[in-house]
Design a binder for these strands. Sequence first.
DNA 1: ACACTGAATTAGGTTAGACTAAAATATTAT
DNA 2: ATAATATTTTAGTCTAACCTAATTCAGTGT
Lengths: 235, 235
Amino acid sequence: MLVSPNPQKTSVHATSESVDDYLKAILELGGSEEALVTTNALAERLGIRTPSVTGMLQKLSSERPTLVHYEKHRGVRLAPAGKRRAWELVRHHRLLERFLHDVLKYSWDEVHEEAERLEHFISERFEDRVAAILGDPEIDPHGHVIPHKYAQGMFRNEVELARWPLRTPATITSVSDRNAASLREIERLGLKPGVTVTIEDVNSSGSLCVRLPGQMDVVRMNKNLAGSIFVTATP
Amino acid sequence: MLVSPNPQKTSVHATSESVDDYLKAILELGGSEEALVTTNALAERLGIRTPSVTGMLQKLSSERPTLVHYEKHRGVRLAPAGKRRAWELVRHHRLLERFLHDVLKYSWDEVHEEAERLEHFISERFEDRVAAILGDPEIDPHGHVIPHKYAQGMFRNEVELARWPLRTPATITSVSDRNAASLREIERLGLKPGVTVTIEDVNSSGSLCVRLPGQMDVVRMNKNLAGSIFVTATP
DNA sequence: ACACTGAATTAGGTTAGACTAAAATATTAT
DNA sequence: ATAATATTTTAGTCTAACCTAATTCAGTGT
């Protein structure tokens, strides 16, 4: 029944799956300072061509009330309504990951894909009930903070392990969920959020030697992997 | 990310939400004898206009391997691939209803809408895990049989209460889930699947007087309500 | 056999969201 | 300051799925 698609969406603006994806990408690429996001960056992130992005941004920004503010040749940022929907999607995604992991026994590397698909379609009731049976969880399986309902989330002060200083203890706060193979490798190495690590050495190609507490042997990882692990200073 | 939509679908044919809806409607309207379903009937069921249906049927039936067999001016029926996907959707729908009701504590009348939306998007893994935590349920909250995985379901020998003979005990096997208001009324009257009823009287406008076992007073219901309750002979 | 009626199809149009190729604008390097 | 390069936008297509208006077809009744 396609007459009125997704009639249950919380936000006022009926957003398509596609628009949802743009909004979430703008949120994530803009980061805490809500910087202008470029056409290129969006095209890259969404796996589509730049003219498609330009077209969509023109369309979105010409609708009133608008989801985004678009400045031709400069970039785009979220308007209030767009920010609301984007954070709602982030909440959906992270709640779903927690749910899939804890209730449906999905493994670490399986949750992202399913959550990415379902986040667009669950109703507010579904969101509420899942949160309730999980006891309003704060953190998803990869260490990301689950924003509160109707609330703007926040960006943590975390940085890629790849650019952390040598011999300075760091605590893993989260890992990127966007690559299942990386996640399996990270799990194998015991690098869950909460674990404290110290970089012993970096070689010319960006490979790291990392020491974990209570383990004799160091762990080796390539640049790419170290780029999907996020850390902060150990208190 | 819209590059390859619904890449997880079990069936070989990547079916859109819209095609899914056609397949399910053809299955349900065709019934156990898999009768040809008319353009009109489909348009009515899907809430769209007949030319849209003709166009879709032409498109679908020209694809190889085909999901449907379409005979111009006569009607359409499911081809094997279409039947597989349609039953898969029915399984998704009924499993989801059971899950929403039992785990997420949705009420009887709330499950249909959510299941109708999500049935298109859950992966095979989701289906399997939900079935597992529910203990492979046989029946959904409205009394419908949940088909087995990969299996063709079956149509029960049930008939609308509205056309059951007078003073002949009948057992409720299922109730239609397509109207939330009717469901609330049915629940209020205590007419759950499994309950045995006897029609005492029918008036000229089709209203029924129904007696429930162990209750003194009879229950009154209109024709419409009696059309969404399905019964079989009491053994 | 033929006209009538209802059902179905054809013809042509719309919108959303993608695409390619070409043009325009910005940025960087000399 | 200007040329070279990279980014972005414009112009024009395409597909999926819907729409309305007009036409054709099939079945029924005389």
